[in-house]
């Protein structure tokens, strides 16, 4: 313990200058911008007494909003798996014409400010939109309902799946497929056993990252979501609503649940990665 402390004070065994300065700067920076807010977030729900917390647990609107967020994020991440795999495949192996442009477009959802994505998707899938109008004719309503939320979350989550699958696919030796063919595997066996199986860790990672992002997503969803309590109201929006009602405890309780869910998803991703790490450098 004492040794750990002295090592912390002098910066391990390195003699490079600047340890104390950079340590002080980093602690100040992370202390004010991360630790302090996290403390506030953790303590605030209890500040109005246990009663307020118990009350919060009876709030069905909160649970409905959380369910909307979680289920939409999970569905969107799930739908993104085949889509992301196809795009990653096309980028790595497909000799796709215009692959440079396609590659740049994959990052678009990350680069596009969320408010811009939000109003754009709402317009695109709205009743008069390029995609909304034909879908409406088919009797499918996307905008201002739950499918709209899923569509928006798919849009923001897609890059996570593509970008985690892509490097693994790139590193997968092409001769693996040839070896399997020489050993007598049929095409579908090659795809499922030799190509998709090594991608599983990357797919889990991509799913987890997309889910974690989707649970907390706000800007790109609220314009298309409809925001009806109990139906199409996402949890982050309910945080904002509670704040407008000056119900800080309620807002903080939802915020804490959102935070813990994302962290849990990311921790599970880390765990899954470690489990598969025996395969060498994979996901």
């Amino acid at each position: 313990m004492q040794r750990a402390f002295s090592s912390f004070v002098r910066g391990g065994n390195s003699a490079l200058p600047g340890y104390k300065l950079s340590l002080a700067a980093t602690l100040l920076w992370t202390g004010f911008f991360i630790i302090l807010p996290l403390i506030a977030l953790t303590l605030r729900p209890w500040q109005d007494g246990i009663g307020a917390v118990v009350n919060e647990l009876h709030d069905t609107r909160m649970f409905a909003a959380l369910w909307t967020s979680f289920s939409s994020a999970a569905l969107a991440a799930l739908f993104n798996i085949p889509l992301g795999m196809l795009l990653a495949w096309a980028l790595v192996r497909g000799n796709l014409p215009g692959s440079g442009l396609a590659n740049a477009l994959v990052d678009l959802p990350l680069a596009l400010p969320t408010a811009v994505s939000g109003i754009t998707l709402a317009t695109l899938y709205g009743p008069q939109g390029w995609l909304g109008a034909p879908l409406a004719k088919l009797g499918i309503v996307v905008a201002y309902s739950k499918p709209g939320i899923v569509i928006a979350l798919m849009f923001v989550g897609l890059p996570f799946v593509v970008r985690t699958v892509e490097p693994v696919l790139k590193n997968l030796p092409r001769d693996l497929e040839e070896a399997a063919a020489l050993l007598g595997a049929r095409p579908w066996q090659i795809i499922t056993r030799v190509v998709i199986a090594p991608l599983v860790p990357a797919l889990i990672t991509g799913f987890g990252l997309a889910f974690a992002r989707g649970v907390g997503e706000y800007g790109s969803v609220i314009f298309i979501a409809g925001n009806q309590p109990f139906h199409s109201e996402i949890a982050p929006l309910l945080v904002v609503v509670r704040l407008q009602e000056f119900d800080y405890s309620g807002a903080t309780a939802i915020a804490l649940i959102l935070l813990l869910t994302s962290l849990l998803a990311l921790a599970l991703v880390g765990l899954a990665r470690r489990k598969f790490s025996v395969w060498g450098d994979g996901a």
Partner: peptide, 9 residues
């Protein structure tokens, strides 16, 4: 990994 809304809250 923190929701933008929470980052403001």
């Amino acid at each position: 990994s923190i929701s933008p809304v929470v980052s403001g809250l």
